[in-house]
Amino acid sequence: MSETASGTGTPRATATAFVEECEDLDALVADLSASDWARETPAVGWTIAHQIAHLAWTDEVALLSATDPEGFADVAAEAAQDPLGYVDRQAEARAALPPAELLAGWRDGRRRLADVLDLVDPDVRLDWFGPPMKPRSMATARLMETWAHGQDVADTLDVSRTPTDRLHDICHLGVRTRDWGYLINGKEAPAGEFRIELTSPSGAVWTWGPEATDGAAGTVTGSALDFCLVVTQRRDVARTDLRSTGAATEWLTFAQAFAGAPKGMRG
């Protein structure tokens, strides 16, 4: 898919963006009281502790994929028996830890993952719960998930986060996973690309797809923030200012930039 916006370009830069996103979320939760850690978030049944516990577990599993493929295969096989239940159980177990211990584990795991993603062969494909991906894509996926769960935490705390141009990689992932969303929802993806034009937090315009909009299967325009909120399923498109035409209008109702079941199958 063509893409004219300037990206971070290297696994190291994307891993750095992942670390920076983690640090921003860390600042939101580091000084929370025990009662705040137990506050319910928009994810049904998950507290703030569950959100951080999930990120800590997922970072560790990503590290396992990069350093011990056979070990990751064992985890993936176990998870495949009950995908949603398995993820919830992992979050539940870590959420029960004292906040200081949970934070320490998350901080250590994300640091080790970032270090490994800096060093691993950039062309190797790392196994995952969805399609295998290269290290830069893995770093982008971790950035995306950290940002998305951070949004859940921010919403719970009624905090308005200042968006950064780290959103570029999340937007790019949202575009690149277009056909994944169609696949898991049992729909046929359009043959043509969409034209996507998003305004970045810094004011630049990021674009993907054919330059001539009349050659696209659909179009999406609006802010990068709104697009990220939609493809991570943190906001319904109707609650944003995104504008769309053609097949892109339906796509925005189920777009999904992350591995896992489609939202109609999640609890």
Rank of each mutant, 00 (worst) to 15 (best):
A56D: 13
L97D: 13
T240N: 07
A76Y: 04
A217Y: 06
E40Q: 15
R178E: 02
A17W: 00
Y86V: 03
D121A: 06
G192M: 07
D36L: 04
W106H: 14
V19F: 00
R235G: 04
L25K: 03
T8M: 14
L173D: 10
L32D: 01
A13M: 01
W46G: 03
W106S: 05
A216V: 05
E60H: 14
G130H: 10
G181M: 00
N185Y: 04
G130A: 15
A261Y: 08
Q51M: 10
A257M: 03
T41M: 05
I196H: 00
G174E: 04
P131S: 11
S244Y: 09
R234C: 06
W106E: 05
P135A: 07
V175S: 03
A77L: 13
E188H: 05
P210D: 08
A148F: 07
D68K: 03
A43R: 15
G203K: 12
D74N: 09
E92K: 12
F129E: 04
A255P: 04
W208P: 00
L157Q: 08
L102G: 02
D123C: 12
S2E: 12
A95R: 06
Y182Q: 04
L113T: 05
A255Q: 03
M138R: 14
T58Y: 11
T240F: 05
K134F: 09
E92N: 12
G150Y: 06
M133H: 05
A255D: 01
T156Y: 11
H149V: 08
T245V: 06
Q51R: 04
A49F: 00
T140N: 05
A73S: 14
D59S: 09
H172Y: 07
S244D: 08
R142H: 04
W208G: 03
I196R: 06
H149Y: 12
M138F: 03
F194A: 02
T4P: 04
L25N: 10
F254R: 02
D236H: 15
R94C: 02
H54Y: 09
A247C: 02
G7I: 04
L242P: 01
D226M: 01
T162H: 05
M133P: 01
T245M: 12
P210T: 04
S6H: 13
R195Y: 10
D155Q: 12
T14V: 15
A148L: 07
P83Y: 01
T4F: 13
A248I: 02
R12M: 07
V61M: 15
S2K: 13
R110W: 10
H149K: 07
L157K: 08
P42E: 02
D36E: 15
P190A: 13
W37E: 09
M144S: 12
E250D: 14
A148P: 00
L252V: 07
D108S: 14
P163V: 11
E40V: 11
S6W: 10
D74F: 13
P190R: 10
D82S: 14
M133C: 09
A91C: 00
D31W: 08
D169P: 02
A204C: 02
H54K: 06
G222Y: 06
K187L: 15
